[in-house]
Design a protein around this nucleic acid. Structure first.
Length: 90
DNA sequence: CAAGTGATTGTTTCT
DNA sequence: AGAAACAATCACTTG
């Protein structure tokens, strides 16, 4: 039962090592300027949905650069989490 | 050991 | 500043 939680984050750890980004975040970074450039004046609902469709529209090979970054970003989180756990006292 | 759970990430646009 | 569609995530927690 994992429903869609929206920006309604709860309380968490004292340091909150956040997590890492998603391939979508990297992909969106490149699409935001492109999608919006092709659809000048479209509402967020259009870009948002349109983006998601195209996201998968590419192919595992196309999202490769995004996934790659996602992995790197994850490592980033691993570090903060390590420090967080460490300073916590674990 | 295994499973699921929740929290989070970033974009866009809008008020 | 936050909210919602869009997708991934995936490390952490727990029985």
């Amino acid at each position: 039962m994992a429903e869609r939680r929206k920006t309604v984050r709860k309380k968490k750890d004292p340091d909150a090592p956040k997590r890492s980004l998603s391939a979508y975040m990297f992909f969106a970074n490149e699409n935001r300027d492109i999608v919006r450039a092709e659809n000048p004046g479209i509402s967020f609902g259009q870009v948002g949905k349109l983006l998601g469709e195209k996201w998968k529209a590419l192919t595992g090979d196309e999202k490769v650069p995004y996934e790659t970054k996602a992995e790197t970003d994850k490592k980033r989180y691993e570090k903060e989490k390590a420090e967080y756990a460490k300073k916590n006292g674990a």
